[in-house]
Design a protein around this nucleic acid. Structure first.
Lengths: 132, 132
DNA sequence: GCTTGATCCTGTAGCCGCTACAGGATGCAC
DNA sequence: GTGCATCCTGTAGCGGCTACAGGATCAAGC
């Protein structure tokens, strides 16, 4: 059994975050010592590490809740793949969106290099006179 | 002078959002009618539309605050460009990050297609045994 | 003048995923 | 027994809205 600080170090999840996950019901309520301190089994630490990996992949807590459910019963590959696929779709949408922004911003900033009258960037923001 | 609903329609900024911007000091306190209703000049509406365009470009309210300041005095092209450049850098970082996620997730999902023993996706999440 | 429905007001709480306190109780080493 | 590290609960803040509740006001029709 580990104390919360040790569990945090081992799993890579912050102490406050672990308490938050417990509050939110993402992990099961942890057993307590006589003085009320949380006690973490190796399995609990492993689950935290799993959550950590999912977070690193950008999954939201709702998705992680679903994935945790899938790891507890017998593995349902299709269900897991569909969670991952939906997440992947969202990521691709974000990439498309950000690339559009990147392009527009690059053009706006470039329009400012020649020191003509006024600031092309500020002008463009101020009114879509030329670009509708 | 326009009422808030009209200003919202004209600027593309939601009613609640306009009130929020005023509360946050992003726009100046709006003059009120005798009964306390906000009155929007054409300039106020134009400023809201400017904010809207900046939001569409992904700028945060702090950046927008700075950009609004730049549009009020005489235009400072360098300052504006540096705000935009910092924002562009952040966007590019995000794109890089998301692309990494996309690749990892794609590989994980692909590993699940052949129905071998267990679920490659769930296994990978559960422990970095093979990939360290 | 009265009713009706649209619009407006303030104030507060919720979203996500933490993070950072305050203020106090333990645990452990010396 | 004395420190210091660690732990506890509870609350508030981040960004950028959004969604209420509960009420006031306005404008149009009759």
């Amino acid at each position: 059994m580990y104390a919360i600080g040790e569990a945090a170090r081992l799993s890579g999840v912050g102490i406050e975050t672990i308490r938050y996950y417990e509050r939110e019901g993402l992990i099961a309520p942890l057993p307590r010592s006589a003085s009320g301190r949380r006690a973490f089994s190796a399995d609990a630490v492993a689950e935290l590490a799993l959550i950590r990996r999912c977070r690193d992949l950008g999954f939201g807590l709702a998705d992680i809740r679903a994935l945790l459910g899938l790891t507890r019963g017998q593995p349902d590959c299709d269900a897991a793949r569909s969670v991952a696929q939906r997440h992947l779709d969202r990521i691709r949408d974000q990439i498309v969106h950000l690339r559009r922004l990147e392009q527009v911003l690059t053009e706006l900033a470039a329009g400012c290099d020649g020191q003509e009258a006024g600031c092309a960037l500020l002008d463009a923001l101020q009114g879509p006179a030329g670009s509708a």
